[in-house]
Amino acid sequence: MNGEILVALNQLERERGISVDDLIEALEVALLSAYRKHAGAADNVRVQFERQSGAIRVLSRREIVEAVSDPKTQISLAEALEKDPGYKVGDFIEEELAAKGFGRIAAQTAKQVVMQKLREKERGMIYEEFAEREGDVVTGQIVRVERGVVIVDLGRVEGFILPQEQVRGEKYNERDRLKAYVLEVRKTPKGPQILLSRTHPGLLKRLFELEVPEIRDGVVEIRGIAREAGMRSKVAVKAALPEVDPLGACVGPRGARVQAISQELKGERIDVIEWSDDPRVFVANALNPAKVLGVDISPDERIARVTVADHQLSLAIGRDGQNARLAAKLTGLKVDIKSDRESR
């Protein structure tokens, strides 16, 4: 049996990358605990696993003294000298104990240690895989909803969409497939915990990167995103080359690219606008689809005072102020919109 354990340990090192030294160390600790329960041994006992032969030895360590007061932890000098004339008082001697009936327990313990190490290795690999994907998008299948938390099957692990990371009004049905943003990967005693989001602006950014080759290739750059998840978003883009149309690249032929992203986000409206280094132009673009007559920037107050035609005022502000609110988020300015008549 001991030889079989050694073969199994070496096989795990080759196939799973788990160090034999780590396995032996964990095995010795577990075997010692099992032996103490089995034999009621004292603290001066240790278990040694022989790497070459696979033999399991139980060793008792006793101090050499003139007069013995505790036979379990002490041995007389006279008795020690019979074993080796070189011993002296204060030395320690280790002797192998007979481990009757311990073989079966040792085999069971070894199996438990191996299984535990395999679980730890698997959890470590999953953690490393998803830790590298923080800020990325993953695809999974909804398996259930528990206490408001959406649980998503990601293959070897489950991800969790907490209520605050869910889109208001979005339905999460079992077996539905969806894409989600990897918000955070946590280490827990039960293994890695993958926290996902459907509301994070990073989800929209990664969907554009996946859908638009020009963004992946660096020809078009996303310079900013303002998002009210499930309702409406604005994405500011800029071309790296003057001959490239950044809006056309992102919208796609007949709007195919932006429509595919909107469909993944359950119909969220997406406005793609062109970034400008001129804050007045950028504010005007950010208020799209409204047509802006003029923009006056007050740098000290961080306010953009915008003038639009009378019939464009409601469009510029948007329903419940949404268009103006998103424009403010995107530009980092407070946007004050007035009609042409009010500005006179």
Rank of each mutant, 00 (worst) to 15 (best):
G3N: 13
L6S: 04
S19C: 13
L23K: 08
L32W: 03
Q48I: 08
Q48K: 13
F49N: 09
A55E: 14
S60K: 12
S60V: 12
R61K: 10
E63M: 07
E63S: 04
T73Y: 01
A78N: 03
A80R: 00
I93K: 01
A106R: 03
K117W: 08
R123Q: 14
I126H: 08
E129M: 12
A131S: 11
D136C: 11
V137S: 10
Q141K: 14
R144G: 11
E146T: 14
V150I: 13
L154F: 10
G155V: 09
E158W: 06
I161W: 08
P163S: 09
Q166I: 12
R168Y: 05
E170N: 05
Y172Q: 11
R175D: 11
D176Y: 09
L178D: 11
V185Q: 08
K190Q: 11
E221S: 01
A226W: 04
A226L: 07
G230V: 00
R232Y: 02
K234I: 01
V237C: 02
A239F: 06
L241K: 12
V244M: 11
P246C: 02
L247A: 06
C250P: 02
G252K: 00
A260C: 06
E264M: 07
G267I: 09
R269Q: 11
V272S: 04
R280L: 05
V283N: 02
N288H: 07
P289T: 02
A290N: 05
V292Y: 04
I297L: 13
I297F: 14
I297T: 09
S298P: 07
E301Y: 11
A304T: 10
D310V: 13
A316K: 11
Q322T: 08
A324D: 15
A327I: 15
A328G: 13
L330M: 06
G332R: 09
I337D: 12
R341F: 12
E342S: 15
R344F: 08
